[in-house]
Design a protein around this nucleic acid. Sequence first.
RNA 1: UGACCCAUGGUGUAACGGUAGCACUCCGGAUUUUGGUUCCGUCAGUCAAGGUUCGAAUCCUUGUGGGUCAACCA
Length: 561
Amino acid sequence: MADEKESLNFIEQIIEEDLASNKHGGVVITRFPPEPNGYLHIGHAKSICLNFGVAQKYGGRTNLRFDDTNPVTEDTEYVDSIKADIRWLGFDWDDREYYASDYFPQLYEWAIKMIESGKAYVDDSTAEEIAGSKGTPTEPGKESPYRQRPEEESLDLFKRMRAGEFPEGTRVLRAKIDMTSPNMHMRDPVMYRIKFAHHHRTGDTWCIYPMYDFAHGQSDSIEKVTHSLCSLEFENHRPLYDWFIQALDIYPSRQIEFARLNVEYMLTSKRKLLRLVNEGFVRGWDDPRMSTISGMRRRGYTPASIRAFADRVGIAKRENVIEFSLLEYCVREDLNKIASRVMAVLDPLKMVITNYPAGQTEYLPTENNPEDPDAGLREIPFGKELYIERDDFLEDPPKKYFRLAPGKMVRLKSAYIVECTDVIKDASGIIQEIHVRYFPESKSGNDTSGIKVKGTIHWVAATKALDCEVRLYDRLFTVPNPSDDPQRDFTEFYNQESLQVIKHAKVEPGVATASLRQSFQFLRKGYFTLDPDSSAERLVFNLTVTLKDTWAKMAAKEQPA
RNA sequence: UGACCCAUGGUGUAACGGUAGCACUCCGGAUUUUGGUUCCGUCAGUCAAGGUUCGAAUCCUUGUGGGUCAACCA
């Protein structure tokens, strides 16, 4: 075994240094902290893989902690879907399912401690007044007239806020830091606000709720999180994160920021994803075109492929946009190893073998997966009438076309070599069916015909094939970064052809017993998975990703539009 | 006209003062009863200018370019 040194990302480097210096007693604790106000998407997947992955790697633990400090937007519905998505991705938090709301009593105590030590005060200003005196990034803010109010008075007011004596918006608790700080977050940030809202867990116990900045770091600290990994936009919050930890003299978790994931043609904004759903661009949160975990699951992406993707995109602080092709590569890589091969014709063209006995059905063995010898063989029916892919026949083929054409021969995969003898068209010139003759001695496995053909095509037996629906998906937008243009709304780049429904595709009979989540490779076409819309009478398949198609690429190059 | 952060092939990411590597993409070739897979190969990079050093992608300075911050959101 070669001892090539594994390259670490900058977070792993920090962790290894901390481990080496025994900073946390050899322990690594991370956390994944979603707010239960929406569905998880591909960006969260990166964070999940990072947080759980790094803890796993160093023998540590990862807590699942719901950041539920804003009751008006949060709901248990999201808690459930988030948990399901994380589990599906292949990670486990054992019994460490925490909620920021579990810490409300402790947070309240700490707030009181802050007031008592003169580090926090109740401000009677309105939201507008507070915003107005905040200053701008280049101008210092002004101190609130309530800033110097006696501690006892703040304490009394804060307790009465908690007791529900004041209406929403009338008072807040603020940290007393520095209104002239160049860092806006240090200009006396709000710690608590009044909200008479029903909380999904604490019900009506509270009418004051802590802000993110007075909850997140504290929650990390309570859980003794050693490395609190978050995205770049929280970089400016770090001084405040550290300030509270110091002021409270509590366990010093360390916040480390990394660049969030951006992927071409994919959105990772809850707001925008919500608009796609609400405005009917997609059928729901789990539409296979969505970048949500649930959408990708329905699309047929596997947990392993998403984990591989998260691994390959890397961790750094630089803004990035990952090419969509990398995601596609990761799915194909996984599915190629595990997906059973299946004969399916998406755009059927009837083929009649004129010299094959009518009414005869032959069962031919074919491999389930050439990449996996253990996958074994299955038998597929063959008969006089078949369906082949319409674009596997061309009346007037270009030079390097290896498929069927008048007078040309091809191999029918796992069956016989056929030669095209006739083309039957309707009055308008549309090809109705093609006639071929087959060579009995060219049977797959014991071909004694001596005939050499360049092309092999897939097929299904007309009388045995199952009729099914196939949904083909393409990128949701016509441009890689639909949010880039400030002049145009991202929905203007919606790809009208992102969904194409094929009502009557033909698939070999064996897939009748397919189960949900099972992936297939439709030979020469792509990877497909069963959609939950399927019923016993009617199968519905989703395209996960096409196979690479070098012929299409060649053809496109030689005849540029 | 502030603070903080970032800058390596087309894309993403390594190299921690000593030969700029890996993956994806692209292109070419071999194999192939999937124009798939696999295998081989080619092209291609340190934002700029100074400085420190025997030696700089790496350290320093100044520019340039990009990102974030002015919610009682997270």
